[in-house]
Nucleic acid binder design. Structure first.
Lengths: 155, 155
DNA sequence: GCCGATTGTGATACCGTGTATCACTAGTGG
DNA sequence: CCACTAGTGATACACGGTATCACAATCGGC
């Protein structure tokens, strides 16, 4: 009766690996996170877990994000969305219109970023690359839309 | 007596170009922004302009950012810093330790991002690329430092 | 130059995201 | 099973930013 290790057991491992205790609230948060497909706000997680305090939800999200279990994408207005990092290192396609967040991977991009890191003075800790888009669904629904958000998007 | 066009005149042009009025408060904000070298918070601008209301400072910053006159960099914790976009399109080197923001340009990176944009489904509006670093000064001052911020930096 | 339509301003109140505090609770190692 | 420590949840607070709204400044037409 353990062909696939239960999610709770995996979460316990992750938490132990962080030197943190595996507690009920943390398991609840992690379980909910892992069950979700897209990216979501900390607040929405809190709303779905009435038994868990707001502070604990935020603390747990931070813990998991620092551990790399969650990743964070920023909407054009800067508000963060979290998603379970099922896959490995990736960047994001963020729809300015419907705010959905998709994963995006490019080996070539990673290679170049890595090369550039060598040219940058100081020590590079990491990078953040996000594409702001109109997703195909929104284009279909609304036709080409103007971007009316912070524009230092650049080109 | 107009060998170099005054900053106010240039700002007026920019504002007109946006279909906005050139007003005293906006000129004050723009003038202060243009005089600064690094990146700064909206709040700090407000503090330096006691005569101008907080809402007006934020509105003006938004206006100029949307116009591409200002650009926005995000510290590892997500808090925004604004800088006057003297140069052309660039990305940022953000020191996790002292929070200074430096411009960074790479033609090769732009080329690749542009290529990738063609492969991305939907319409790409723009991108955000930031490198999180320990700047040379901080490395000298403190020695290699651990990053203890949100870690979806990736690699 | 003045005048009215319109845009912008500033005070205030509010929202969203997140952290500090602190009395209390629940894991954990012996 | 106990004691020690880490975690929890309520509350209060901080910060960045927006909505509202009465009032002021701007600007185009005359």
């Amino acid at each position: 009766m353990m062909a696939t290790k239960s999610l709770d057991a995996r979460v316990d491992e992750i938490l132990k690996g962080l030197g943190s205790r595996a507690t009920g609230p943390r398991r609840k948060v992690a379980r909910l996170l892992a069950s979700k497909r897209g990216a979501f706000s900390a607040e929405s997680i809190h709303e779905e877990l009435p038994g868990v305090g707001r502070a604990t939800v935020y603390r747990t999200i931070r813990l998991l994000a620092e551990a790399g279990v969650l990743c964070r994408a920023l909407l054009p207005d800067g508000s963060p969305r979290y998603s379970f990092d099922h896959s490995w290192h990736h960047h994001h396609l963020i729809c300015s219109s419907c705010e959905t967040v998709e994963a995006f991977r490019s080996a070539e991009l990673e290679r170049l970023l890595c090369e550039l890191s060598d040219e940058i003075p100081g020590r590079v800790l990491g990078h953040q690359v996000d594409f702001y888009v109109n997703c195909p669904d929104c284009l279909k629904r609304e036709g080409p839309v103007e971007a009316h958000t912070i524009a230092n998007y650049g080109g």
